[in-house]
Write a protein that binds this DNA or RNA. Structure first.
Lengths: 231, 231
DNA sequence: GATTAGATTCAACGCTTGTTGAAGTGTCAA
DNA sequence: TTGACACTTCAACAAGCGTTGAATCTAATC
């Protein structure tokens, strides 16, 4: 598979008239939603163009090959989100200085910016998160794309987690982060399965309820493994 | 999308000569691996047939349309796995009777049969689990296929978890199960990302290490949320 | 008002897709 | 040996794919 090295402002029409930029965004919105639903290979450029209300050829004209459009979708909100999460982490650390913040605060910095985005009126954030969930669990896309867009941020967070438990082996920190990441990813997916399993007691798009429980849940898990040891 | 109502023994060649049955299995093996890597739409029947060493037309002859082949792949090992997990749960419950087993024992019954399968010499189980991970986080496949093949088993386990915490609201039980399910799913995916993030300290196919930590981690999370309450 | 560059449309390209019907091959029963 | 039947191959189908080059339109500059 080809490398993707372009940035989100690449391709034509990136700094053109408002009308053009609006169409670019419409294409990204449509691609975001459709990719989230059906994955990279389950969507055609013609579907995306139809939903965006533009000609097929325009998708290639703006973004180049399909893979670069996919990359542009991931990057658009990824940059915003990573910045918000990093700011939240910095705030938590400043507040607790010179001590490290509690693991709850670190996890909260990881999750709450998502809640704000997902609960907003803009449906796009939910589509984006669902796409991340899909891609994250794919061997090919997960390794290639998620790493590219998120590794830098994740390293900041795992380093902060290590500072919460300075005596814990790195192995334990990373497996604990892995648990957090997996649970979060399934929440993103918003599959509606918990609604069915729980007979309506839970709703998969009720992100606040999910995160309210996820924070103490994961914090307790971290402490169990990173302080008491895995046995 | 069309309904799939056939069972795994449907289609032609299901109870024919050993040579024919062997070819059926080869097709399922190839489909399993390729679907796990690239998803339903990212794989063509011609790729599957080539990897299985058979003619394309045979895939349709044996299994019918592509979607039914996909279903047959999910069902083949799903039935075996569900039985092993249910047996493990029953054993844990009998051992603890008349009390409910500890939450650790319930989680262990949920996880250990997977470890045995994944650590076996048969690569097929790892492919199958990676496929489940991929499908589980897809809005369309997750709802349709995972529910069909796993809901019955999951209801047994969530009921057992509820018996561990009889005073906890069902909402809390299901959100905790959700966390377990998500973390497990990411482990299945075996993306190799934890290897990179941890600089080699962890290996994503080291399922035993993952489960050894996941059990105490998740048990502590359950207790925090289901006893202490989400605050 | 002419010129020019970018935005947009249209039509087509070569190629691949899932599926199928007809033809061919093997195998066991009568 | 013949017949029947399931298995296997082959070739083809219509439909759709991503992408592109030429033509057309739009709008700002000279």
């Amino acid at each position: 598979m080809a490398e993707v090295t372009v940035d989100s402002k690449s391709g034509r029409g990136a700094d053109a008239s408002p009308r053009t930029q609006e169409r670019r965004e419409k294409i990204l919105d449509a691609a975001e939603e459709l990719f989230a639903t059906s994955g990279f290979d389950g969507v055609t450029l013609r579907q995306i163009a139809r939903q965006a209300g533009v000609d097929v050829a325009l998708t290639s004209y703006y973004f180049g090959p399909k893979l670069q459009l996919f990359d542009a979708v991931l990057r658009r909100r990824g940059e915003i989100l990573n910045k918000a999460r990093l700011d939240a982490l910095r705030s938590a650390e400043e507040e607790a200085a010179p001590n490290p913040p509690s693991i709850e605060k670190v996890i909260e910095a990881f999750l709450r910016p998502l809640e704000i985005a997902q609960e907003s009126e803009d449906r796009g954030w939910r589509n984006y998160c669902a796409l991340i969930a899909y891609v994250n669990n794919s061997p090919v896309w997960g390794k290639k794309m998620i790493g590219k867009h998120f590794d830098k941020l994740v390293r900041e967070f795992t380093a902060a987690m290590q500072r919460c438990f300075p005596d814990a082996p790195a192995r334990d920190i990373f497996w604990c982060y892995h648990n957090l990441s997996g649970a979060l990813s399934l929440t993103f997916a918003d599959t509606g399965r918990i609604d069915i399993l729980s007979g309506g007691a839970c709703e998969s798009h009720d992100f606040k309820s999910a995160y309210d429980r996820m924070i103490p849940f994961m914090a307790a898990g971290f402490r169990q493994v990173c302080i008491a040891g895995k046995g």
